[in-house]
């Protein structure tokens, strides 16, 4: 691991603070001399500066913090049918996708923090998009027991306990808007399906730091390298040839478990041989 020596100097961080504070309209809290320095000043030239190393990142102990136990069982079962484990490798269940969804629901996505959620409410046309007063947390909380109730009443068992083929049938009915669960209007179920589906895909392919894609299994499935290298010069060397590397995650780089070049881009290793692939950092040299 190449040492990234450069540290944020006190004057740089002071400048950043003054810039942010002044931009926030807090200039009056600063002293006179600070105010003199507080004009935001963007760097005039690219200054490629590797970030300093962070010191300690804990291994997260996973536990469901939003889902109730029956909800967790439902989601584990559903995601394992959407992306099953098979000859090609682990599926969504084995890679933590249910936990990913739990954590997403616990945060700003679950609370629809950046959605416009003011009334009045009215169902619109499909072209007008999402028009429900429910945020994703509430949709999961409402639709899971509805589907479990339906499964229990029609098949004698909650969704998680059905045979996989019965689970597949039920998911296909949900997808095809053929599931009718009185008194729930169809749009609840169709919206829930779309969100469950999207969340499953996101969990399987997003950076493992969010709790899914464990061991980068989603990336390995498709041959995605994760955090990018600088592909300048590399792209043409691989015309028509697979670029097969050990994928690199955000945590690998932040914790120093993977190599980075001087600009912070990942240095990839050949998947088969483990050898470091040549990278082309010449684009970062600025002597003219």
């Amino acid at each position: 691991m190449k040492e990234r020596a450069e540290k944020t100097s006190p004057s740089l961080s002071r400048r950043r603070f003054l810039q942010v504070a002044s931009a926030l309209g807090l200039a009056h809290l600063l002293t006179g001399s600070e105010q003199a320095q507080n004009t935001p000043n963007l760097p005039q030239n690219p200054q490629f500066k590797a970030p300093g190393q962070t010191r300690h990142l804990p291994r997260v102990q996973a536990a469901y913090t939003f889902f109730t136990l029956p909800e967790a069982r439902f989601v584990e079962a559903a995601v394992s049918r959407l992306i099953p484990a098979d000859d090609l490798g682990p599926g969504a269940l084995e890679t933590g996708v249910a936990y990913f969804i739990d954590q997403q629901l616990q945060g700003k996505f679950g609370l629809a923090a950046t959605w416009y959620m003011q009334g009045p409410w009215q169902q619109g046309t499909p072209e007008q998009g999402y028009q429900h007063p429910f945020n994703p947390q509430e949709l999961y909380r409402l639709c899971i027991p509805a589907i479990d109730m339906h499964a229990e009443e029609s098949k004698g068992q909650v969704f998680a306990d059905l045979s996989v083929s019965a689970q597949d049938d039920l998911l296909a009915a949900l997808e095809g808007e053929k599931l009718e669960i009185s008194p729930l209007p169809q749009f609840f179920l169709s919206t829930f399906w779309q969100i469950l589906y999207d969340n499953t895909m996101q969990g399987f392919f997003a950076d493992p730091v969010y709790g899914g894609n464990d061991q980068k299994a989603g990336w390995r499935l498709v041959g995605f390298p994760g955090v990018a290298a600088a592909y300048r010069g590399v792209m043409e060397a691989y015309y028509g040839r697979p670029y097969q590397v050990e994928p690199v995650s955000l945590a690998d780089l932040q914790a120093g478990a993977a190599l980075a070049d001087e600009s912070g881009h990942a240095i990839h290793r050949d998947l088969a041989t483990g050898e470091i692939l040549s990278v082309h950092p010449e684009s970062f040299k600025h002597e003219h």
Binding site: R232, M235, S283
Partner: peptide, 8 residues
């Protein structure tokens, strides 16, 4: 001065 794209 601006940098060169690395096709990331």
């Amino acid at each position: 001065t601006q940098g060169a794209c690395v096709y990331c």
